[in-house]
Simulated assay, not measured.
Amino acid sequence: MTAAVPILRRLWPYAALVAALLLAWHYRDRTLALSEAMTAQAARFTQAQDDARSAWTHEKARLEFRSRVDAQESDRRYAQALAENRAITAAFAAAHGLRAAPAARDASGTRAAAEDHGAGLPAELPAAPVVVAAVDLQACTAAVTYAEAAHDWAVGLAQPSDDR
């Protein structure tokens, strides 16, 4: 045993070096495996991002198309309702003896020179007179029709739909 001690004293740095090399080799393999795992995870993450971006782009395009279709349908319904309401208003104005337009005015707000200075009302008033110009009546009709169309559109947004 005494002969082994001098050899151990002389070889211990080499044994420590071999042990250090074995540990380095072990951790190198482990580091490479972790690096490969992280690279694979990064590739999966990138693929998931691309898939999500593609799905988002597709869904956004679908919703924008649906919104354009809904807007066109709302505009069509509004135009139809406006035409119907203007016809009803014109019939009402004709039935109740309203004039076609108010007196013309210039930029200063004074009456134009060549106009009729009459009162603008028929000789006989209907039983329930309405004293408003037909143009104003049409403007109010357009505003109310637009408000109703906007309300219907807003209510339609809250309605669940199969393709929304």
Rank of each mutant, 00 (worst) to 15 (best):
T2Y: 09
V5D: 05
P6C: 05
L11E: 13
L11T: 12
Y14N: 10
A15R: 11
L17C: 05
V18G: 08
L21C: 08
L23E: 03
L23V: 09
W25P: 01
R28H: 14
T31C: 11
L32R: 15
A33N: 04
S35F: 11
A37T: 04
M38G: 11
T46V: 05
Q47A: 13
A48Q: 07
Q49Y: 06
D51F: 04
A52N: 06
A55I: 12
A55W: 10
W56S: 14
E59I: 13
K60R: 15
A61S: 09
R62G: 04
S67V: 06
S67F: 11
R68K: 10
V69P: 00
A71D: 13
A71K: 07
A71W: 06
A71I: 02
E73Y: 09
D75N: 12
R77T: 03
Y78V: 03
Y78Q: 07
A79E: 14
Q80L: 14
Q80T: 15
L82M: 06
E84L: 14
R86I: 04
A87Q: 10
A87N: 07
I88S: 05
I88Y: 14
A90M: 08
A90P: 02
A90D: 11
A91Q: 12
A91E: 09
F92N: 00
F92E: 01
A93W: 00
A93N: 00
A94K: 15
R99Q: 15
A100D: 15
A101E: 15
A104K: 15
R105E: 08
S108F: 03
S108A: 08
G109V: 01
R111D: 15
A112E: 15
A113W: 12
A113L: 14
A113E: 14
D116N: 08
H117I: 09
G118M: 03
G118K: 03
G120D: 06
P122Y: 01
E124Q: 13
P126L: 00
P129K: 07
V131P: 06
V131R: 06
D136W: 01
D136Y: 00
T141N: 00
T141H: 00
A143K: 05
V144H: 00
T145A: 04
T145R: 00
T145I: 00
A149S: 14
A150P: 01
A150V: 14
H151M: 11
G156W: 10
L157A: 05
A158M: 11
P160F: 02
P160N: 01
S161W: 08
R164P: 02
R164A: 15
R164V: 05
